[in-house]
Design a protein around this nucleic acid. Structure first.
Length: 334
DNA sequence: AAATACAGCAACCGCTGTTAG
DNA sequence: TCTAACAGCGGTTGCTGTATT
């Protein structure tokens, strides 16, 4: 039970209307500040800190109360992915919202939803435990290495699934790519520029934020978008183009530069931002959605009209929707 | 209808950085 | 330079209303 009186006899706990009125009247007359002397001068049995918090978090006239809009929610997520738990910095970019309010909203709504949908709310990347599909396959005694060596004998759909699995696990991914590099039987090998360099201009970055949102984040320390010399061997390029894993499965663009850096760390992965939005593959039946909802445009495109909890829920859950055709039957190829 | 669990949020706590004397 | 007061911040607590059993 929270004690309602502090040691020096000052009141604690919820504010009454009368106290609010006194505080408002005093601040209107003298302006905010001098919080230490304010309670005494205003006739309040509160500490200055309590008065300041009450004013800044609740009584300030410019505070916007009520439900967060979807636009606001998106902004919070984007800013949090860059700023972390810098609630005041986030609040500074959301007019009318307090850091406390945003913090509460994050902890009670957004954080929970991200967790539920397999997004780590700290790193804004898919949670490791959601990337254990390959382990499940391993447990089922499916040897990915052998599996991949059969690629010329099996339907490309299987290869696509394998790529999908491999992509979710760095070790398997590298194994997968090596298999394709070293396999002279691979008919899909296409020679491409081995010195392909992926420049930051190819990546969605916070620059996009400022282009599409009124907020400014110039003072934000951004994750480094180093020039990444991509080891884009032909096979990995080809396979990745087939899988379009990031857009289809993880909706990577929703996590902008953060995820970009993660992808970059995985050496031979080429971000699919450089891949044309429409891909037609000779023998693949996998669909390739033309666009994924970029965080910086989605709010003004098809997402923005959906603002109910359920719809937000489904929006997040789509981040991990595996875009596998309904008719796809793994057993057909085993 | 009562008990319990859960969610939401206002308020508090403690720490840190800044400023003035 | 030191120190105390102030202000701000992020994390946590606990009250309240609502949903579920």
């Amino acid at each position: 039970m929270r004690k309602l009186l502090s040691q020096n006899g000052l009141k604690k706990g919820p504010w009454t209307e009368d106290e609010d009125l006194k505080l408002i009247q005093y601040v209107h007359a003298h302006g905010p500040g001098n919080w230490r002397t304010l309670p005494k001068n205003a006739g309040l049995q509160r500490c200055g800190k309590s008065c300041r918090l009450r004013w800044t978090n609740y009584l300030r006239p410019d505070i916007k109360r009520g439900r967060f809009s979807f636009q606001e929610e998106e902004t919070i997520i984007q800013l949090h992915s860059v700023l972390g738990n810098k609630w005041s910095a986030i609040a500074a970019r959301l007019p009318g919202r307090t850091d406390n309010e945003i913090k509460n909203y994050w902890n009670t709504h957004i954080r929970r939803r991200l967790l539920k949908n397999g997004i780590d709310p700290v790193t804004h990347t898919p949670r490791v435990d959601f990337l254990e599909l390959s382990n499940i396959l391993n447990a089922a005694k499916i040897n990915l290495s052998n599996f991949l060596n059969l690629q010329t004998l099996v339907n490309p759909q299987v290869l696509t699934l394998a790529a999908l699995v491999a992509s979710s696990n760095k070790e398997n991914r590298e194994l997968f790519l090596n298999n394709n590099i070293n396999n002279p039987m691979n008919p899909n090998l296409k020679q491409q520029d081995p010195n392909f360099t992926c420049s930051p201009s190819n990546f969605p970055s916070t620059q996009n934020v400022s282009q599409t949102h009124p907020m400014q984040i110039n003072d934000v320390q951004l994750p480094p978008t180093n020039l990444v010399n991509m080891n884009t061997d032909a096979s990995s390029q080809d396979i990745l183009m087939r899988t379009r894993l990031t857009e289809d499965c993880f909706n990577i663009s929703n996590y902008g530069s953060q995820f970009t850096s993660v992808v970059s760390e995985s050496s031979s992965f080429q971000p699919l931002y450089t891949v044309p939005t429409t891909q037609t593959f000779d023998d693949s039946v996998f669909s390739s959605p033309i666009t994924s909802p970029s965080p910086f445009i989605s709010s003004s495109t098809f997402i923005n009209n959906h603002s109910t909890e359920d719809e937000r829920e489904s929006y997040c859950s789509n981040m991990f929707k595996l875009d596998i055709e309904e008719s796809f039957e793994l057993n057909d190829f085993m």
